[in-house]
Amino acid sequence: MVQLAKTPVGFFVVAMRNQVVEFEELSNQPDKAAEQLLTYEEWVTRMKQKGYDIETDEPALDPMKVAELIGVSESAYLARSREVSIAVAKAAIKKHLKRDLLVVQTVGALDDLTKTTNMLMNRLTEWYGLHYPELKVEEDQEKYLKMMVQGRKVSDSMGMDLAEEDLHIIMDYADSIRELFRRKEALEAYLDRIMAQVAPNVHVLAGANLGARLIARAGGLEALSRMPGSTIQVLGAEKALFKHILKGVPPPKHGVIFQHPLISRAPREQRGKLARSMATRLAIAAKVDFYSGDLRPSLMDGWAERVKEVEQGETKKSERSENKGKQPPFKSVRVKRGDKHGKK
């Protein structure tokens, strides 16, 4: 039976009576050593393959005492620990601080692109509509662009004829819009990838787009991880919240979380409760993502049951007291009580 030790000096296999039987030394350059520390699990696997009977994978021994076994003094151990820890902490912080800010910017860029393409498309349809008024955008702007490029106009169109030069300039303009749509697709795919890295649990629960919006609204993953579900539930409804506080209108039931397909597709009366349940799960997901980053599939456990409960609750509602289960995520702060029935 042997014991393992992971230390800033190196990895050890220690046998009975403090005998060091294996020692993998780490580089004395702190940055390198910090990287090598990440290979500890692989080293453990190698040791197992070598046939050592290992008590537990977790390093259990006091690292300073183990280092002493190969002649590293206490002061040398501490000095070394400091250098390596600084390198480890720097690398970890660097990883942590940056990526969620990329999410915030990417989702902002996507919104900018959507606004821009909408604006440009409005102009384009009006412009090209002079020539071909029968072509309709429907909901699919990209399809409009495609049909336009194909250029087949119905023969009995009421639109005006255009000269080669006129058409050319419109087509070029349309091309630049198509380019923006391609940019949007690339950003969406990228957002999906980084969300899976930065916030894997939020990603699974809310999807890349909504998850990113929550992170952006909160001001980063750290901020989101500190929020209770009740706050997450109304993220993106800040305007409504202010109105509620200042003017005493009913408080908002849900913010951007309302875009979640599981919520937006539910019957209207059920959305508030589902949003609350989802927000609670997202609050946990954000904490796990921020602090450990492990994927926890169990976060959606019980969702189907909750949906059923809510459905049944709705049908039984008339039997229950009026307010129960209907409460907004926080206490109502009505300024003027008399206003209660004022707005009709």
């Binding site: 390093p59 690292p63 300073m64 820890s85 600084i86 480890v88 942590h96």
Partner: peptide
């Protein structure tokens, strides 16, 4: 300051920093 060592981790998981923190 030569007598400070940073550890970026949660205090909930002391086994995470057993590799560097002695008695």
């Amino acid at each position: 300051r030569s007598n400070l060592i940073p550890v970026f981790d949660t205090a909930n998981k002391p086994e995470h920093y057993r590799w560097v923190v002695p008695q």
